[in-house]
Design a protein around this nucleic acid. Sequence first.
DNA 1: ATAATAGTGTCTATAAGACACTATGAC
DNA 2: GTCATAGTGTCTTATAGACACTATTAT
Lengths: 226, 226
Amino acid sequence: MPNRLTAWIASDIVALTLREGALHVALVRRQAAAERGKWALPGGFLLDGESAEDAAHRELAEETGLEAAGVRLEQLATYSAPDRDTAHTTRVISVAWLALAADLPDAAAGTDAADAAWVPVEKALRMRLAFDHRQILRDGVERARAKLEYTTAATAFLPETFTLSDLRAVYAAVWGEDLDAANFHRKLTRADGFLEDTGEVRTGRGRPATLYRAGPATELNPPFMR
Amino acid sequence: MPNRLTAWIASDIVALTLREGALHVALVRRQAAAERGKWALPGGFLLDGESAEDAAHRELAEETGLEAAGVRLEQLATYSAPDRDTAHTTRVISVAWLALAADLPDAAAGTDAADAAWVPVEKALRMRLAFDHRQILRDGVERARAKLEYTTAATAFLPETFTLSDLRAVYAAVWGEDLDAANFHRKLTRADGFLEDTGEVRTGRGRPATLYRAGPATELNPPFMR
DNA sequence: ATAATAGTGTCTATAAGACACTATGAC
DNA sequence: GTCATAGTGTCTTATAGACACTATTAT
C-alpha cells in the first residue's frame, strides 16, 4: 500500500513585463544541479516558516531584483504531477504565481542565478524550459490575458503615470490585436475608478496626451472583452 | 538559517450541489486525530505516486461516494500559511478543488468519515470548520459564482436533462437573486452550444417545458453578468 | 373556467464598433 | 503650412432589462 507523500514545495513565478511593445517573461538560467543550465522560471523551494507567497517574493527578489513592494503576486495554480521533476528522488510540488511588472532598467541578475533575462514570451514558449515551466508559462500568459478583460491589471505594466496610448499598447501587446483608439479612449475614461487624471500632459510628436495614474478600482465592470 | 521545508500535501474539495433550491456543500466529520470531531471539507493527504487531482478524486469517492466519472474538478488555490495546521509538527500544504455535482439520492458516508452530509452553504459558513476550511469554502463559493457568469458550468448541478426553469433555479440559488424568466430563456437558448433540445417535454402544473441537455460549449461568450 | 408555468413580442436604455471629424502639438 | 498623435461626434447594430402578452397544460 502506498505511503503518505512527503514533498518539497517550490514557488515559481511567471513575471511578465512589456518591452518595446512586446510581452516579455523573466527567465533565469538554472544553477542548481537539477536541470542545470536550462532556462527556467524564477523560483525555488519554501524554507521553514515560509508561506508559498513569502517564498515567491523572496525568490523573485533574489533572482531578478524585482522587489516585493512593487510587485503584486497572484496565485496561478499548483503543479503536482508525479513525473514533473524526475531529477530529485523527493517529490516536488510547485505553486505557480503570476506577477505583472512595469518595465525595469535591466533584469538584474541576483545571487542565485547565473543569468537572468527578460525574454519575449513568443520566444520563451518555443524554448525548452526546465521541468513543466513551459506549461506554467502558457497558463500564466492566458491568465494575464483574461485579467485584462475584467480587472484594471493592465496598469501594473506601466509606470506611475501613463497615457491612454501607453495603456492601449499594453492591451495590444497582451492580446495580440490592435484596438480602436477612439473607442478605447471612451471606454476606459468612463470606467469608474480605473483612471485618475493627473492634470499633466506628455508632449511628443502629435497632440499632447493627458497623463493618468491608476485609480482605486481593481475590477472592471462591465468587462472589456477581447 | 532556515532549512528547506518538507511538507505533507493534502487535497481538499469544495463539493457543491443544489438541494431544494439552496446551495449545499459536502462536509465530513473528522476521524483523524488532528481536529477530530470537527466538520471539515472532504479531503486528505497525497499518497506516493499520486497527483493532487488523483488524491482529490480518491478522497471524494472515499468520503462522500461521489465517483470520479461524474465529477469535474477545478483547482481553486493552494493554502500554505505556516500556521494553518498546528496539529501536526510536519507542515501541511493544502491544494483546494472545486466540484459541482448534481443532486444525489443521499450523501453516502464512506469508509474514512464517521459522517458525511450535505450542509447548506449559508449554514456551513457560520460553522467552525477544521483548519482554514471556512476560508477555502468562501473562496470556492465565490469561484462557483464567477464560473456561472462566463462558463456553462451551471448544467453540472443538474441531471442529464433539465428544463430552463431548472437551470434558472441554479443561477438563482448560486447568485442569490432571481432572474427574469423571459430574458433568461432568450439569452440561454441563443447562447451557441449551451443547450441542446432533446425533443422531449416535462409536464407539470403548467405548460409543459422543453427538456434540454448540456451542449458542447464550455465557455459562455458574451458572459452572463450578475 | 382558473391557476400555473412556459415561452414570445416589444419597447427602451445602454453599449460596442466603425469611422468621420476636430484639436493641438512639433517641425 | 504638413504630419502625427490625441481626443470627440455620430451613426449603426446588438444586447439587457422590464414587462405585457400568448401558449399549453392540470384541475
